[in-house]
Every structure is written in C-alpha cells, then in structure tokens.
Design a protein around this nucleic acid. Structure first.
Length: 149
DNA sequence: GCCAACGTTGGC
DNA sequence: GCCAACGTTGGC
C-alpha cells in the first residue's frame, strides 16, 4: 500500500464473546480505542493486515447473543500484538463509532439470501472477517444505521 | 453443556 | 513435510 493513498472504504466484522470483551467495554475505551489482540489465527491476522485507517466494521457478539451490536472504526493499522512475544501475530486498533439502532441477529442474516456468502454464515469460526460493500449496506439497513456513518 | 468443525502443534 | 492429537470456537 502506498503511503498517503486513500483507497475506497473497506468494511470488516469483529467477533467477540461478550464475556471476554463486550461492546460496552469497547465503548468505554472511547476514541482512544483498543487493540484487537489475542488473535492466533493466520486467516484472521491476514484480514487485519488488509485494514486501513478509517475503515469501518461491525462489532458482533457471539455466544448467547449472536448479533451485530455496533459500528467501529479502524484507528490503528496492523502492528505487533503486545500480548505476545511471538512476532507472527499482529493486530489493529478499533474504536466504537456508534451502537446500532436495532441489533442484527445471526438468524436474520442467515434468513437473507443476499447474505448467504458472508463468512459469518459460511465460516462461523473466523473471528475477523471482510464484509462486502453490498453486505455492509444491507446490514446497515437492517440495523437502522446510515451506511456512510 | 455438548459436540462438530477447524486450525495449530509437535512428533516422526 | 505429513498427520495425528489436541485445544478452541461457536452454534445449537
């Protein structure tokens, strides 16, 4: 990636067990954000390496809730994960932008054939995922959120 | 709380 | 470099 190049906005999805790291905790970090650490999976790491400053993402609660609950922004691009000395693992920082008007449940996503190709549906264990511009728009619609917010 | 799927680890 | 064992994840 060239320095200073502003590419098209990209979209992502971050999955978290609310008992480990919740949307409420993310919001409490404010604009400083927090590193999305602890990822020990190459595919998820590679996804994070593609993220650019200012990209947007969904914040998804797994476990009992299973719903997208908030919008986040990438506030630091991939850098070494400070929770390990293992140089293989990178992470980005994200900050909360806003909660969604209405949580979008996994059930609702699975029920929409336009979203059938999402990794969330196809590869449920991938903890950090890309989201297509179309899926972003559709889900923002369901969530009562302006896709450009 | 179970279990299937998956990904990483480590022995060979 | 293969593959079995193991640990983890996440939906149900």
């Amino acid at each position: 990636m060239e320095e200073g190049y502003l590419g098209p906005m990209q979209y992502w999805l971050f999955k978290s067990e609310p008992s480990a790291w919740s949307w409420q905790e993310q919001v409490a970090r404010g604009d400083a954000g927090e590193q999305w650490d602890g990822v020990r999976n190459y595919q998820a790491r590679n996804v994070m390496r593609q993220m650019a400053l200012g990209d947007r993402g969904f914040f998804y609660h797994s476990q009992a809730e299973r719903a997208i609950v908030g919008i986040v922004e990438i506030c630091a691009e991939a850098h070494p994960d400070t929770t390990t000395d293992d140089p293989r693992w990178d992470c980005v920082d994200i900050r909360a932008v806003m909660p969604v008007e209405a949580p979008v449940t996994l059930d609702a996503i699975k029920a929409d054939p336009r979203l059938a190709d999402m990794p969330l549906v196809r590869q449920p264990r991938l903890s950090v995922q890309p989201v297509s511009a179309e899926a972003w728009r559709i889900i923002c619609d369901m969530a009562g959120v302006d896709p450009s917010s």
